[in-house]
Design a protein around this nucleic acid. Structure first.
Lengths: 391, 391
DNA sequence: CTAAGTTTGTTTAATGAATTTACAAACTTT
DNA sequence: AAAGTTTGTAAATTCATTAAACAAACTTAG
């Protein structure tokens, strides 16, 4: 059912717009908001005063005048509440407490051995509880929890399938909501990463971007017109399983020649082990490359080539303005970048490529956790802007 | 800038909703609309009366009662205006005059030899003018022109690049608007086809679908949540240039092993010519296959396999509910379908595949032209719903 | 055939958010 | 000090929706 229009809706729309400007363009005056938005000064004044009353905005003092009464500058009150973000990894979890602007107040990183769903969930709950307890006093308190997971999540926040964790059908959202009595948002780690980069990282200025998370597998979060794009059923971007060789080796997904068989951390390690004859991990490979080991550098360069092959497919399939490469493999940027760019130069269509940027993540391993916290904040505003207006 | 809210907006929203129900659920009474939408009877009554006044709705007579006053049934007035749709092909164009419901009133199919942009454009204008002149008398007359083209179009309706026509940078929209003084919408033929299938074809009941147009090249139109998805810069879905073999043969786009090198009409003909030793066209191949020519049937089956490879990529990358295969090659459905479905069964991820349908187009070569006409109608409603409400 | 109940659609008054207009306060510039 | 600018608030007006009441038109039970 489509949402019908009424006065409530109008107020909600305008209040959201005013709050948006206070959040992003602050410090800003009432008059300036009226000018930018096209709303009258009276309307802006009234909405701003309600926002101040609900502690989301505050007056910070007078600003500079350009030949008239000095404006009263407004600031978003980032400490009216706090959010929890968690990046649940295969062998570790990173959790943060942020304020409403996304500023990290506290951070906890914990290893786990993924013995069972239950054990990891217990650890997760403990970690979240600890962060909640250390949150500073504030008007709204902790307003919600966001969680990025390495797997497929449905619209009800059930973790349907997480191959690298070996989990299936875990009702994460309802479990956590029951435990803490707070709103919980769960999404794929690549989606969270995309939002993290969009809000706080390299993608701040870009409306359309794709965040490619290169870890054990490859995932992607797609942002179109400033919004996360989800496929039909809420999960999209199983981009690691786009085949780059139709008669290639068999993938556990059933298909042949999937991109992540060639360009993931797992692919790199496997290749390295075959060539070196013993088990290795990513950290040691990075060290070796750093010290000039030609064989290992070659491995990275080859990975760069394969990354490029998939990136060209992304460009042709989605036509983004900006591709951000993240995940743990981003540490190999130094050796991956050149072969990747060479390949793009050669192979991508001229029209889509015109204004394309490709970069490695700025936030490194924090994209996902910050995006997760941002989910919680977004959900909070989506709900309060309605309820506040009812008062 | 975000759109602010005011009473105008509210009315526009509600009027659009009411009109939507009259268009899709008719015959329907005012009371029933109020019930479905949640608007009050008074509001619905007022909006319906305005729609009647502007000739977009009409009262058709009383309906059946269930124990009270009989309802006055409402109908959408499809003949309040007419739209032109054109599917501009590489060697022909198909043009239709439809009413506002999309019903075809008149159809013209014309061959052309694509001698020059100018000549084809002249032919296009002649064809459109003829259809306009034969349009029945109506309140709004011909309300706009929609055009599907085999190439990349920007937001201003410039045809940037149409490789199979050999055209570049043609300001189609402004040319046609200047010529006819009517609103013109231009889009890629695959996008138009997707909208056509969504409105009038196999996709009527589906909110998320991908229409794959298999012609000389391969294109795709993507509909997510009932809306056409466009990439960052307005054109997306150059899906034919997703590589299915990273070290495959060189494509004119610069990349290697593009899908359309394996699964397009062009690929089929090339293959056939190599095996048969002389030039052939699609029609003759279809005839041969129909008469049981094992060699030709084998060619189609192989094409089916390659179609499947790309379709699996689409599934993993976009996660649609429904894939509709259209374009001229759809005529080979009989031999393409089985190998394609076999491959899907084997290779696609279990989760996305769960509720997936794959079908060949119902509308055959009319998907694009109907979608194009529908663009014009949609644009008309988007504009009138505003202007009508100002009166 | 009548009375009671139901359903439809209109009328009237109330609500409330934005706009328009006016204005006071607080500045800068000449 | 006077004139002009800019900011923010106040009062009156506008207008689409809602709520409540109601008239008209119909079905059904007895």
């Amino acid at each position: 059912m489509k949402q019908t229009g009424d006065l409530n809706l109008v107020k909600k729309i305008n209040k959201t717009i005013v709050l948006h400007h206070i959040r992003t363009d602050s410090p800003i005056s009432r008059a300036r908001i009226a000018e930018i938005t096209g709303l009258t000064k009276a309307t802006v004044s009234s909405l701003v005063n309600e926002l101040i009353e609900s502690s989301l905005a505050q007056e910070i003092g007078v600003g500079e005048s350009s030949g008239g009464r000095k404006p009263m500058m407004l600031l978003f009150n980032g400490t009216a509440g706090y959010a929890i973000g968690v990046d649940l990894g295969v062998h570790d979890m990173l959790a943060v407490l942020t304020d409403l602007t996304g500023k990290v107040i506290r951070e906890k990183r914990i290893q786990h051995h993924n013995e069972s769903v239950n054990q990891v969930t217990q650890l997760l709950k403990m970690t979240i509880r600890e962060l909640i307890e250390t949150a500073p006093e504030s008007v709204y308190g902790v307003i919600g929890i966001g969680l990025g997971v390495p797997g497929i999540v449905d619209e009800e926040g059930n973790l349907l399938f997480a191959p690298n964790l070996g989990w299936e059908n875990v009702p994460m959202q309802s479990q956590l909501e029951a435990e803490f009595g707070l709103p919980v948002v769960i999404d794929n780690e690549a989606n969270a990463g995309a939002v993290g980069e969009k809000q706080f990282g390299a993608g701040k200025e870009t409306a359309n971007l794709i965040y490619v998370s290169i870890g054990m597998g490859i995932g992607a979060g797609i942002i179109i017109k400033n919004e996360l794009y989800r496929g039909a059923t809420g999960f999209s971007g199983e981009i690691g399983h786009i085949s780059i060789q139709h008669d290639g080796p068999k993938c556990r997904c059933g298909s042949l020649g999937c991109w992540e068989l060639y360009a993931s951390e797992h692919a790199l390690l496997e290749q390295a082990e075959r060539e070196l004859g013993h088990e290795v991990d990513l950290a040691s490979l990075l060290t070796k490359a750093e010290s000039g080991d030609a064989g290992v550098i070659k491995l990275f360069e080859r990975l760069g080539y394969y990354l490029g092959v998939g990136v060209v497919n992304i460009i042709n399939g989605y036509n983004p303005e900006f591709i951000i490469l993240g995940g743990r493999l981003a540490g190999g940027e130094k050796w991956l970048m050149r072969p990747l760019l060479d390949l793009l130069e050669k192979r991508s269509l001229p029209h889509p490529r015109k204004q394309l940027k490709v970069e490695f993540s700025e936030l490194r391993d924090r994209s996902t956790v910050l995006g997760a916290a941002s989910f919680a904040v977004t959900k909070f505003f989506a709900s309060t802007t309605v309820s506040v207006e009812r008062s």
